[in-house]
């Protein structure tokens, strides 16, 4: 088997105040896969995500991205390989214009001049936001800002795109547009979400994180249609949603 893009083994982590969030997480994501990370609030999802690009370093166990271990020495390359899109686009977009914001990541990697411009244009084109390049981010709609936030990490040519609640606060049309964009990207995706229909629509495989460990994993349709498993981890489908019927329409 090839080296997984994301290889998390026995990851445990406690915050400095002693609160332990992760108790031995094992997670593998292979190239081209789209995987949903599900779980109730407080399960440790965000803590896990912050390990993937070395904001937190493993207390025990290990994290590797395409074979490269996440350590202090590798941090620059790790942050290029792992692109995290945070939940609130206002946290992610902090420069004066969309163009500058998308350029921020690749410029930190040393790209300059025409190569940088080309990269920015390419990333914005992938999310359909080229014509907004010179607008200040706060003048865009929420859905547009979310798309630009995705472009800011795509511009770094990540090996894996990590999305924290990508569909939150989006109106249904923006939510669908984002789904279309994500489906069209040729990139590995790990998606943290409470939006279970969205997980079913976009991700073949799902992982349930609960109590700081991986409680279950499998095909998304199997996970969502296992009522006992769902109840045990405080996961609930929207009223009237039938995952098996929905999966049949995919």
């Amino acid at each position: 088997m090839t080296t997984p893009v994301l290889d998390v083994r026995g990851l445990a982590f406690a915050y400095p105040d002693g609160h332990q969030a992760l108790f031995g997480v094992d997670l593998h994501v292979h190239r081209g896969e789209r995987v949903a990370l599900l779980g109730p609030n407080g399960a440790g999802k965000t803590t896990l995500v912050l390990h993937l690009n070395g904001i937190h370093l493993a207390g025990a166990g290990s994290v590797a991205v395409s074979g490269l271990p996440v350590t202090k020495a590798n941090i620059k390359e790790i942050r290029r390989r792992v692109g995290i899109v945070f939940q609130d686009p206002d946290d992610q977009l902090f420069m004066g214009t969309v163009r500058e914001d998308v350029a921020f990541g690749p410029a930190n990697l040393g790209l300059r001049g025409e190569a940088l411009d080309a990269k920015v244009t390419e990333a914005l084109a992938k999310v359909g936001m080229e014509e907004f390049a010179d607008r200040p981010p706060h003048h865009l709609s929420f859905g547009q800002r979310r798309r630009v936030a995705v472009a800011t990490v795509l511009a770094m040519d990540p090996e894996i795109l990590v999305l924290d609640e990508p569909s939150s606060n989006l109106d249904p049309a923006s939510r669908r547009e984002l789904a279309d964009i994500l489906r069209g990207l040729d990139v590995t995706v790990l998606m943290v979400t409470h939006d279970l229909p969205y997980a079913l629509e976009l991700c073949e495989r799902s992982v349930i994180l609960d109590g700081g460990v991986v409680a279950a994993e499998g095909r998304t349709v199997d996970v969502l249609s296992n009522a006992d498993l769902m109840r045990a981890h405080r996961l609930e489908l929207p009223f009237g949603f039938d995952p098996v019927a929905a999966a049949a329409t995919l």
Binding site: L50, N53, I55, K76, R79, R80, G83, I84, F86, D88, D90, D91, Q92, F94, A103, F104, G105, A107, N108, L109, T152, V153, M156
Partner: peptide, 21 residues
């Protein structure tokens, strides 16, 4: 707190304390 989250997002994209020029 927003400042902290912004900083986190910047660090995640390779920020090391200087704006790239």
């Amino acid at each position: 707190e927003r400042g902290e989250r912004v900083h986190l997002a910047m660090v995640s994209r390779g920020y090391t304390g200087r704006m790239p020029r």
